[in-house]
């Protein structure tokens, strides 16, 4: 029956590795978050020019 075939279709593409199974969408999202985390650590934070060192005494 066509409707049952439709219901059996997966809702998306999945990556499987042993007991681990994750949707491609979730894997991409988690990967993007890890990249964003790494960039937040590595990229220099812009500083205001001409105002000297900010803070340091609080």
């Amino acid at each position: 029956m066509k409707s049952s075939v439709l219901l059996a279709d997966p809702a998306g593409r999945y990556i499987s590795a042993g007991v681990i199974q994750i949707s491609l969408t979730n894997a991409i999202t988690i990967g993007a978050m890890i990249v964003l985390f790494a960039l937040a650590i590595l990229l220099p934070f812009p500083r205001h020019g001409g105002r000297g060192r900010r803070g340091g005494d609080s």
Partner: peptide, 19 residues
């Protein structure tokens, strides 16, 4: 003066503190 501070320690100049 710390409820809404206008100065922060220098180490806060990092993107990780923005999240």
């Amino acid at each position: 003066g710390q409820a809404l501070p206008d100065r922060q320690p220098a180490y806060m100049s990092s993107w990780i503190y923005v999240f």
